[in-house]
Amino acid sequence: MKKILILGAALVLTATTASALTITGAGASFPYPLFTKIFSEYAKTGSDTVNYQSVGSGAGQTQLKSRVVDFAATDVPITAADLPSYPGTVLTIPDALGAVVISYNIPGVDSNLKFNGKAIADIYLGKIKLWNDPALVKLNPDAKLPALPITVARRSDGSGTTGVFTDYLSKVSPEWKTKVGSATAVEWPVGVGARGNDGVAGVVKSTPGAVGYIELTYALTNKIDFGLVQNRTGAFVKPTIAGAQSAAANVVIPTSGVISLTNAGGAATYPISTFSYGIFYKEQKYGNRTLAQAQALKKMLTYVVTTGQSFSEALSYAPLPAAAQSRARAIIASLTFDGKSF
């Protein structure tokens, strides 16, 4: 598997042509490793510069609302209640597909631990405090689980990965749904907070006994163990490209381009799978924007959801299925400038 190194929160890739424009984006850390590769390859084609800041889904949404970026990325869509506060119609497209894993650092224990939804929820509710808790021992009778305190790692920033994770927990744990709920930022019952997927990965890697939810690529890159999660059919599934593809294959993508993949059906489905989304304004003539800038954004977005998907598997993301690519291209095609298609 190809390795990547995640060095920081900013991605700036420069095209070779002197006339190239700069496209700015901000948001989710979930797709950042994939964006690094896609935008690097895009620059090699002589196309425009892409400056993407990995600041978290919540911050990305805020920057799009303020119109300081051309596009944003988020792992959960803008809520229906918040959409009217944006100064224009926002379009949403799936642009990446991957898995959120349950990563852990338990000395002497490998990456094959089994979890079910209740156990994960109870860990994050603070009800399961030790790794040799009877609930975990029952799921893993052959593992030598130590009497080691569990350090819960979670996001401190507004996070789409948190939105996906808490969406899953709300589906599998009535207690979680009632007490905590699902959002990009929640009142955590327990835990140590960190910014970004890389921040949570750092806490888990450096803390014996820690557990955290992170995107698969971050676990692989940082060589952190992660477990299998029981899906709706009762099967324990390890997070893989195939598991995420199965989740996407078991849903119908609506015209909005937005759908939750957590706890989807299918025997091979990994239950904490998700699309990540690109968001941008339908009407591109606002502020001092030019038609050339609008055309550059349209070209780049089309590349991301088509050619760019060919780089997914090497980075442990699943390529967008044909139905998702088709839906994304149709949404991109609906962009307007001064009320006219371009």
Rank of each mutant, 00 (worst) to 15 (best):
L13M: 14
T17C: 06
A18D: 12
F30I: 10
I38R: 01
A59D: 14
V68S: 14
D70E: 14
D75N: 15
D75A: 15
A81Q: 14
S85Q: 06
G88L: 08
I93L: 09
G98F: 01
V100Y: 06
A135N: 01
A143I: 01
A143L: 00
L148H: 09
P149H: 09
D157P: 01
G160Y: 00
T161S: 12
V172D: 04
S173K: 00
S182Y: 02
E187I: 13
V190E: 10
D198R: 10
A201I: 04
V203W: 03
A210H: 02
I214Q: 00
E215P: 03
L216M: 08
T221W: 07
K223T: 11
I224T: 08
V229Q: 04
I241F: 02
V251W: 08
T255P: 10
T255D: 15
V258Q: 11
G265R: 12
S273G: 05
S273D: 06
G278W: 04
Y281A: 02
Y281D: 01
G287M: 07
T290S: 15
A294Y: 02
A294C: 13
T302I: 08
G308E: 11
Q325W: 09
R329V: 14
I332V: 13
A333K: 09
L335M: 15
S341H: 13
F342V: 12
